[in-house]
């Protein structure tokens, strides 16, 4: 079994260094994959380059994870801009709601002013969770518009994933706010994978090296 190393900032590691480390330790450094990927021609999977059987399993699992992350239940709070999205069609949240510094909205339009600790009954009422918020302004963790490749790299990037290490990433799938994506009330379409299958795919992805699928 290979142990993914501690996720480190790509900024402090040169591409060469990373390659050396990963080869020397015979261990996959996820961030290194990113860089290796970048210097390889697009479309070639990292796993193949590194000749590692688990990389295919990992990247494959991420594609399943990706289908969930790109569903409105997840993506709507990981927008490209500073305004959350709404609805199955990912339209920009009405009322000009803004992310705010801490991701919890601004002034009279803070998330929890409408989004309660639990779903509000009825159609088109605010879904709820005690932790309801967007990623903060200094760590936006954008999903919207990201390819599977880019999103996998982002999530594995300690400096772009909310400073989560492997354990914290694994734990994140169990977070009550993430889990709430499967129970948002009303007629909201749930993510395309059952929650348990999502957790399984998430774990498989990370535990097998956290590989990014090839860039297209």
């Amino acid at each position: 079994m290979k142990q993914p190393s501690e996720i480190k900032s790509p900024n402090i590691l040169s591409v060469k260094k990373v390659l050396v480390i990963s080869l020397m330790l015979c261990c996959i450094v996820i961030i290194a994959s990113a860089f290796k990927q970048k210097i390889n021609s697009p479309g070639i999977a990292i796993a193949v380059n590194i000749a590692n059987d688990d990389s295919a399993t990992s990247a494959q699992a991420f594609l399943q994870v990706y289908s969930v992350l790109m569903s409105p239940r997840c993506m709507n709070c990981h927008p490209a801009g500073n305004r959350p999205l709404q609805g199955d069609d990912n339209h920009i949240h009405t009322m000009n709601v803004q992310r705010g510094k801490d991701g919890k909205g601004l002034y009279a339009l803070k998330c929890s002013n409408c989004h309660q600790a639990e779903n509000t009954a009825g159609l088109h009422t605010p879904p709820g969770n005690p932790k309801w918020q967007l990623p903060p302004a200094d760590m936006k963790m954008v999903f919207q518009g990201k390819s599977a490749h880019d999103l996998a790299l982002q999530i594995m990037d300690y400096n772009r994933n909310g400073h989560k290490n492997k354990e914290q990433l694994l734990e994140h799938a169990r977070d009550t706010l993430v889990k709430a994506g499967w129970n948002m009330g009303g007629d909201r379409t749930p993510p395309p994978l059952a929650y348990d299958d999502f957790v399984k795919a998430w774990d498989t992805w990370i535990n097998n090296g956290g590989y990014a699928p090839p860039a297209k």
């Binding site: 009405t94 009322m95 000009n96 709601v97 803004q98 601004l106 002034y107 009279a108 339009l109 002013n113 409408c114």
Partner: peptide, 23 residues
């Protein structure tokens, strides 16, 4: 709504007003 805006931002710009009052 406006009272919260003014408390948190004593000199709101038009944009701040949009951010607070569009609800």
């Amino acid at each position: 709504s406006a009272a919260v805006l003014l408390r948190e931002n004593p000199n709101p710009t038009d944009e701040d007003i949009d951010d607070a009052m569009a609800g």
